[in-house]
Simulated assay, not measured.
Amino acid sequence: MYKIMTVEDDLKLCKEIQEALLKWGFNPVKVKNFEDILNEFVQNKPELVIMDINLPCFDGFYWCQKIREISKVPIIFLSSRNTNMDIIMAVQMGGDDFVTKPFSIDILVTKLHAMLRRTYSYGENLGDVLECRGVILNINDSTLSYNENKIELTKNELKILLLLMKNIGKIISRDRIMRILWDDDTFINDNTLTVNVNRLRKRLEDIGIKDFIETKKGQGYVIL
Rank of each mutant, 00 (worst) to 15 (best):
residue 130 L to H: 06
residue 212 F to G: 09
residue 215 T to N: 05
residue 21 L to Y: 03
residue 64 C to S: 14
residue 79 S to P: 12
residue 11 L to V: 08
residue 81 R to L: 15
residue 75 I to R: 11
residue 170 K to T: 10
residue 107 I to W: 08
residue 90 A to E: 11
residue 187 F to T: 08
residue 157 E to D: 14
residue 36 D to G: 08
residue 110 T to G: 15
residue 154 T to F: 08
residue 97 D to V: 00
residue 44 N to P: 11
residue 53 I to V: 12
residue 41 F to V: 09
residue 189 N to K: 14
residue 109 V to E: 05
residue 112 L to P: 02
residue 122 Y to R: 10
residue 52 D to N: 07
residue 17 I to F: 02
residue 188 I to N: 03
residue 25 G to V: 06
residue 37 I to N: 03
residue 167 N to C: 06
residue 103 F to K: 04
residue 199 R to A: 14
residue 111 K to V: 01
residue 124 E to L: 15
residue 213 I to D: 05
residue 93 M to A: 07
residue 63 W to E: 01
residue 151 I to V: 08
residue 218 G to P: 09
residue 109 V to I: 15
residue 8 E to F: 00
residue 102 P to E: 08
residue 55 L to D: 01
residue 216 K to V: 15
residue 101 K to Y: 06
residue 56 P to A: 10
residue 189 N to F: 09
residue 153 L to P: 13
residue 56 P to M: 02
residue 111 K to S: 04
residue 198 N to L: 13
residue 79 S to Q: 12
residue 122 Y to F: 09
residue 209 I to Y: 06
residue 165 M to F: 05
residue 197 V to W: 12
residue 103 F to T: 10
residue 84 N to H: 11
residue 80 S to V: 09
residue 59 D to F: 02
residue 69 E to L: 03
residue 57 C to Y: 11
residue 215 T to Q: 15
residue 83 T to P: 12
residue 30 K to G: 04
residue 57 C to L: 04
residue 133 R to D: 11
residue 224 L to D: 09
residue 74 P to G: 01
residue 61 F to L: 03
residue 1 M to V: 11
residue 120 Y to E: 00
residue 81 R to K: 15
residue 154 T to W: 10
residue 112 L to R: 00
residue 25 G to Y: 02
residue 27 N to Q: 14
residue 39 N to C: 03
residue 135 V to R: 00
residue 49 V to D: 02
residue 136 I to Y: 13
residue 45 K to I: 07
residue 5 M to Q: 12
residue 66 K to Y: 07
residue 51 M to F: 01
residue 126 L to R: 13
residue 44 N to R: 13
residue 63 W to D: 01
residue 169 G to H: 06
residue 39 N to R: 11
residue 1 M to Y: 12
residue 204 L to Q: 00
residue 118 R to C: 00
residue 22 L to E: 03
residue 194 T to Q: 07
residue 38 L to Q: 08
residue 8 E to W: 02
residue 67 I to C: 11
residue 145 S to V: 10
residue 116 L to T: 04
residue 123 G to V: 02
residue 55 L to M: 03
residue 170 K to N: 14
residue 103 F to A: 05
residue 66 K to I: 06
residue 90 A to P: 12
residue 180 I to P: 03
residue 32 K to N: 11
residue 216 K to M: 03
residue 55 L to V: 10
residue 185 D to A: 03
residue 180 I to R: 01
residue 146 Y to M: 00
residue 183 D to F: 14
residue 39 N to M: 13
residue 20 A to V: 01
residue 140 N to A: 15
residue 30 K to M: 05
residue 191 N to V: 05
residue 67 I to M: 13
residue 184 D to G: 06
residue 217 K to Y: 09
residue 45 K to F: 05
residue 206 D to Q: 11
residue 72 K to T: 10
residue 191 N to C: 00
residue 143 T to K: 07
